[in-house]
Amino acid sequence: MFGFRPGRRRGTAAALLVATSLMLTLGGCGVDRVTPQDARDEAGTDDKAGQGARGVDCAKAKCIALTFDAGPGKDTPRLLDVLKEEQVPATFFLLGRKHVDRYPEVVKRIADEGHEVANHTWSHRILTDLDEAEVREELSLTQTAVERITGRKPTLMRPPQGRTDDKVSKVSEELGLAQILWSITAKDYSTTDSALIRQRVLDQAHGDGIILLHDIYDGTVPAVPSIIEELKRRGFTFVTVSELLAPGKAEPGVVYAPEKD
Results as ranks from 00 to 15, higher is better:
residue 174 E to Q: 14
residue 135 V to A: 14
residue 159 P to K: 01
residue 206 H to Y: 06
residue 175 L to R: 02
residue 205 A to Q: 15
residue 182 W to K: 11
residue 144 T to Q: 06
residue 178 A to L: 09
residue 196 L to K: 13
residue 187 K to F: 08
residue 194 S to I: 04
residue 135 V to Y: 11
residue 144 T to P: 00
residue 168 V to N: 00
residue 206 H to P: 10
residue 193 D to S: 12
residue 188 D to S: 14
residue 161 Q to L: 13
residue 143 Q to R: 05
residue 151 G to V: 05
residue 188 D to G: 06
residue 137 E to L: 13
residue 155 T to M: 08
residue 178 A to G: 08
residue 179 Q to C: 04
residue 205 A to K: 02
residue 142 T to S: 13
residue 142 T to I: 13
residue 158 R to W: 06
residue 160 P to D: 00
residue 165 D to I: 15
residue 173 E to Y: 05
residue 202 L to K: 08
residue 205 A to H: 12
residue 161 Q to H: 09
residue 171 V to N: 00
residue 161 Q to F: 07
residue 152 R to V: 05
residue 184 I to R: 03
residue 203 D to I: 02
residue 189 Y to I: 01
residue 187 K to W: 14
residue 203 D to C: 10
residue 163 R to K: 11
residue 153 K to S: 13
residue 187 K to H: 14
residue 133 A to R: 04
residue 170 K to Q: 09
residue 137 E to W: 01
residue 180 I to V: 15
residue 166 D to I: 10
residue 178 A to W: 02
residue 140 S to V: 08
residue 201 V to D: 07
residue 185 T to M: 14
residue 155 T to L: 01
residue 186 A to G: 12
residue 207 G to Y: 00
residue 135 V to K: 13
residue 192 T to V: 11
residue 171 V to L: 06
residue 140 S to G: 11
residue 135 V to G: 00
residue 187 K to P: 14
residue 172 S to E: 03
residue 167 K to G: 04
residue 152 R to K: 04
residue 176 G to Q: 03
residue 157 M to T: 15
residue 153 K to F: 05
residue 166 D to S: 08
residue 175 L to H: 03
residue 164 T to Y: 15
residue 161 Q to R: 10
residue 186 A to Q: 15
residue 141 L to G: 01
residue 165 D to C: 09
residue 168 V to G: 00
residue 164 T to P: 15
residue 184 I to V: 15
residue 161 Q to T: 06
residue 163 R to Y: 13
residue 149 I to K: 03
residue 162 G to F: 09
residue 162 G to P: 02
residue 150 T to V: 08
residue 138 E to Q: 13
residue 183 S to M: 12
residue 138 E to A: 10
residue 169 S to Q: 02
residue 187 K to C: 10
residue 168 V to K: 00
residue 180 I to G: 01
residue 167 K to M: 09
residue 133 A to D: 10
residue 154 P to K: 02
residue 135 V to H: 03
residue 150 T to A: 03
residue 194 S to R: 04
residue 136 R to D: 08
residue 180 I to F: 11
residue 195 A to M: 09
residue 184 I to D: 01
residue 190 S to Y: 03
residue 199 Q to T: 03
residue 183 S to D: 08
residue 186 A to P: 05
residue 137 E to V: 07
residue 203 D to S: 06
residue 176 G to R: 02
